[in-house]
Design a protein around this nucleic acid. Sequence first.
RNA 1: GCGCCUGUAGCUCAAUAGGAUAGAGCAUCGGAUUUCUAAUCCGAGGGCUGGGGGUUCGAUUCCCUCCAGGCGUACCA
Length: 529
Amino acid sequence: MLDKFTKLCYTNLMKMKDIIKEWLKESTGLPVEVATTRNPKLGDYTTNIAFSTGGDPRENARNILSNIKGKPDIVEKIETKNGFINIFLSKSALLGVIDTVRREGEFYGSCNKGDGRRILLEFVSANPTGPLEVPNGRAASIGDCLYRVLSFMGYSVDREYYVDNCGRQIKLLAESINARMSGEDVPEGRYRGDYINELSDEVRVLKPRDLEKFAVETILSQQRKTLTDFGVEFTNWVRESEIRKICPDIIGKLRKGGFIYEKDDAVWFTASSFGDEKDKVLIKSDGEFTYLTPDIAYHINKFERGYDTLIDILGPDHLGHILSLKGALEALGYPAGNLIVLISQWVTILEDGKKKRMSKREGRFVTLDEIISTIGKDVAKFIFLTRKRDSHLVFDMDVAKKESKENPVYYIQYAYARMSGIEGVARERGVGIDDSKTALLGNEEEMNILRKLIHFPEVLEEVERTFEPNHIPTYLTELASLFHTFYERHRVVSGDRDLSGARLALTAVIKQVLGNGLSLLGITAPERM
RNA sequence: GCGCCUGUAGCUCAAUAGGAUAGAGCAUCGGAUUUCUAAUCCGAGGGCUGGGGGUUCGAUUCCCUCCAGGCGUACCA
């Protein structure tokens, strides 16, 4: 039995948690759940099984422990404390992570959990009525990171941007440009801002036949450039005008299913029978579709293209129609439960210590371009990805500018660059990595690093489970901190050739994991700073 | 009014399926560099986790209630 676990360990070291779980299950006969311990002094893994069996947990834990016979090689010791059963990994098991990372390299942390299942990730999808703003940057960061992580975990992920190139806001855009061209002030409720002036100038020169289309496509290409500068790419750009073509068919199907009725010259969907507050209009009395109609069609179109799971990252302003959308999908027999809607909360901008009330129509907004040029994309992404999606994040422009020089992202990047520096020194002195000498490692700082490295795959699984990227920045900061502490206390390249070789292996592995993590965040890993 | 989200250190945020002493960064104060990058390290202070109930061996986490803020509650998107 022990051999089996040992073998498992070396073929797939990242699953040590599972190995321990299996071992405890087999030897106790209890439905054991294993968790990562927060405090390394309390071991590497822990189980609270003794709390759920009734009676005194401390006594239970001791009884359970005394019944466990033997242990896999990866376990150094197992002990109880306060009713918890704590498992300490052996030094050789911890050292094994070096081999694993050295072998797997840029794939360390990846897995095949997704098994090729197809996910369509829709995010940003800003109206083509102006430049991308700060909240779009937040959604872009999160969407891009989820794309990278889910792909890393074996899902087949496409990224899509939905372009609302129809509807009222496009008419308002055209009116704004027309007003500007004729030298008038832009009327109330229309779009203002320098970009409208620039567009007007272009229109004056180019005299496009279709003003609306010209304006939309021009703005869209600017948005695309912003995203490229931000390091975020999309697989597809889907225009609402294309989706509208299939709307009559969708409405026909809904009507056939009895989910449609007419009232006040409008066409209604029976959303209230699917849990929504009230029924929703699909075709207005003027014959135009509402926003909801093409959105239903779009999501049906997504399922029809063969995706297993649809993920939408939306702003909180879209809360109102999620239930209707899911209701319509359900009505037409699509798996509404496979549509996962993630709400990326607003960003409050503070400027000069005051809340900046954002309004694109009034020309008051902070663009993503501005953020990229003032604080840089790495800092911006890190700020966005450190927060949970649901938190109402406060983006203080003054602090962001000031801290762009001392942002935590540099803490991680600096650790990475420092290790590059060490590699350079090692090369100069003719010292190389020696994987065969890693047993020489063993001080507290080194062991803490190894313990942390083991948990990287678990962090990614957490991101996959919760769709919350923020665990990665937290983890990387902790790992970088452990490295910096190690660096202050011990020399990597020293007169001791064997120890130097072992420590170079260790730093190579830390660097690899930091690099993998930064890459999943879409943040650069600089060789020097 | 109703629905969803949020409320944690002076500030910005964490807390891995309810776990052990609630953690980081910034700010404040005190230390560390003849040695691989000081964008670093070590230490100190700072908390009735918005208030009040409840469930539990155990609650920042779950339930109820109140307070504060955001969003939604359109034949806007």
